[in-house]
Structures are given as C-alpha cells and as structure tokens.
Design a protein around this nucleic acid. Structure first.
Lengths: 203, 203
DNA sequence: ATATTTGTCAACCGTTTGGTTTAACCAAGA
DNA sequence: TCTTGGTTAAACCAAACGGTTGACAAATAT
C-alpha cells in the first residue's frame, strides 16, 4: 500500500491543484484547500512539490503545454490559410469546451507576472509566427487573399476563438444566456467564426 | 485644512485602491499597500470604506461604469451598423489604451465571482442588445448586410477589440513585440478591425 | 531478522493579514 | 473656549496562511 499510492498521490495532488489553481488563481488558492480536494494531508503537498510556487508552476506549465500544440498546428502545418482557419476554429472550440478554465487561467497568470512569458518562451515548444506570416504573404501575392498582415490576421483568429470563453460571465450577462444557451452558442461558433473570417479575407 | 482634505483623502484612497486592485486583483491586493500608495494611514481605509470588500466593490463599480457607456453607445444610438462598428472600434481602442488594466480587471473579477454580474445587471445602466439585434436584422433584410445574427456579430466585435488588451503578454510573446510595438499595433487596429468586420458582413 | 527508506499524518511554528483600538493632535465651526 | 471631525502612529488581535517537525507504519533492502 505504499508505492502504488506514492505515484497515485502525486497525480492526485497535481489534479487537485489544477482544479483549485485554475478556478481561484495563484493568489486565491489555499494549500489546505488543495490538500482537502486531493483528500490527503497538507504536508504531502510540500513533500512532493516543496512549495506553493513550485506546485503552481507545475500546474501552469502543464496547462500551457496543452494550449501550445493547438496553436503550433495552425501555425506550422502545410495546409492553406483557409483550411488552417477552419480547422483551428473547430478544434479549438471543441478543446476549450472540455477545459473551460484553461485560457482564463493562463491569461490571468501571465498578466500577474508578465516575465513568465520569457521563461516559457525558451523551454517548451513555444509557437512562432514566421511560417504563418510567410504563408499569408504568399497567398496575398497569389491573389487568393485580400491584402492583410499575418500578425493582424493571427490576432483576429485567436481573439474570435478565445475571448468568448475568457469573458463568459460578461457575455452570459449581456446576452442573458443560461449555461446551456452559452454552450449552444459556442457550438454554433465552430463554423460561424471561420466563415466570418474567410468572408472577410478571401478574394 | 480639514474639509478640503476629507474629500481629498477619500478620492486619494479610491485612486490608490484602483491602482492596486486593478493590477493585483482582490486577492493579490493588501490593505497596507493601498494605504502606502495613498500616502495615508491604514486606519483611514476602514474609516472611509469599512472593509476591504466594500473598498473593492467601490473600485469595481467605478471601473464597470466606465466601460458600460462605451457599449451603450454602439448598442443604442441611431447610426448604421457600419458606423457603429467604425465608431466603437476607434473609440474603444483609444479609451482602453488610456486605461489598459480595466478590461482585464473586470473580466478577472467577474470570473472569480460570477454572481457579481447579476448584481450590476440591476443597478447601473447595464447594456442591452435588443435595439442592436433589431437593427442588424433590419439591415440584413434590406440587403445591406449578409445574413448574420446580431448576437454573433456583437461577440465578434467585442472579441476583436477587447481580447488583444486582455491577452497582451501572450501576444507580446508570440509576436515578439516591445511595449512600443504593441502600442503601434493597437493603433493600427483602430481601423484594421472595423475594416475587417465590415468586409465580412457587408453586401 | 534487522535496518533503512518512503509515504503519511497530526500538531505545531512563525508570519502575514484584515481589522480594531487607543491616545494624541490639529484645524475649523459653534 | 469648547466641541467636533479628520488624521496619525502604534500597538494590538484573532484568524488564516505557508511551511516544518517528529513520530509512525508499511515497504524495501541488507
């Protein structure tokens, strides 16, 4: 009843920490609350992760490493811009619907500690825009797309896809939606958003 | 040197609280820090605002009351949809450039405490979409706009305008921008965004 | 069989935090 | 002159917090 639990406990902690940190943030989270959520003693948190800061970083890097591949796909695969937009919009909204706290958590904590960006910029497979920019420029010159800068298009795409989840309470308030309504609306956006973008940029 | 300062101190506190709360959030802010920022004694905070919670709510309502009119204009004036989009995009980006912490603060705290929405929904001049929806529908039927739902268009508009400010550190990281670069990019978006939207929806 | 390591826990520790209190001070108004 | 209201520094308080300790049992190694 030891080694089986030792691996198990560590994952239980990380999972509990994920839940608490992602809903309450670093400042709002309490070590005791994480321990309770994991159903273990508070000392165990420090036994496995030494400090709140390190536990938080484990959670954060885990969260970020889930988001980065989503972006890397659109930025670096060989499909056309139109295909990229359609795929990303569909896949990203599906993905976030399953992890609704993720984008807000990442954004909130990056705002709290902006030099965090530099840290993760080096380590993990941090997305780069070079290939995407080149592809946009190429399709613009070929007359497939109307003139647009790659970086502006990129911001358009992520704004339209991510923002509704980040501002969920606000949007629910403005549009007077229930949780179910909101989910349905996001479902519609899986195609609505890509059509909206493509309408605007395609010749 | 009494009554002049009494009003003054109250504003000094609110202003200091604004700075601290908007950068660190409710959980990250410390009463002592706010007192220091205001250059007054900590007892004064409680003298004027009784508790951290009440001081925070004063700051939050103040912040929200700055944002709401921006939306109310676009939603309720009599201009065409195209004009609404152009005006809102230009004005909103100008406005937020002067108050960069505002949208993130509001969104972060609404996520932390979603039933806050209901509170402010009653009290202040909370924006409603009815008129905007009707106008969109009318222009679609008149053939001015391509078919689109008002609520989806509304989400598009606020996403494209607000998100870049909320995700500033992320965007700075992806695009490898300095603060100056970022500001320039947002300046470009004052027209870029509205053109992008109008391209997509106009017949 | 014995010793060591590893996982776990309850209790504890020092510090920070939001909030209160006290005593004194000062300027303005009655 | 006396009261009143804004202000301060300082001490104080209880609760909450992150983190540590020491004991103990189960698993592993010798």
């Amino acid at each position: 009843m030891k080694k089986e639990n030792s691996e198990n406990t560590e994952k239980q902690i990380l999972n509990a920490a994920k839940n608490i940190f992602q809903t309450k943030g670093m400042n709002g989270a309490r070590m005791q609350e994480i321990a309770d959520e994991a159903g273990i003693n508070k000392a165990m948190l420090h036994y496995y992760y030494r400090s709140k800061q390190l536990l938080f970083e484990a959670v954060f890097e885990n969260a970020f490493s889930l988001l980065a591949p989503q972006l890397n796909t659109i930025l670096n695969d060989d499909s056309t811009i139109e295909e990229k937009i359609k795929n990303f919009t569909y896949n990203y909204i599906s993905f976030i619907s399953k992890h609704p706290y993720l984008p807000n958590f990442v954004i909130q904590e990056l705002n709290r500690n902006p030099n965090f960006v530099e840290k993760i910029q080096q380590s993990s497979a941090f997305p780069t825009l070079d290939k995407f920019n080149a592809k946009v420029e190429k399709e613009v010159k070929a007359g497939i797309l109307k003139p647009i800068e790659g970086k502006q298009l990129f911001i358009h795409i992520i704004s339209l896809n991510i923002f509704p989840f980040v501002a969920k309470p606000l949007i629910k308030g403005f549009l007077k939606l229930s949780d179910k309504d909101f989910k349905k609306l996001m479902e519609e956006r899986k195609t609505e958003v890509s059509e909206f973008i493509i309408h605007s940029i395609k010749n």
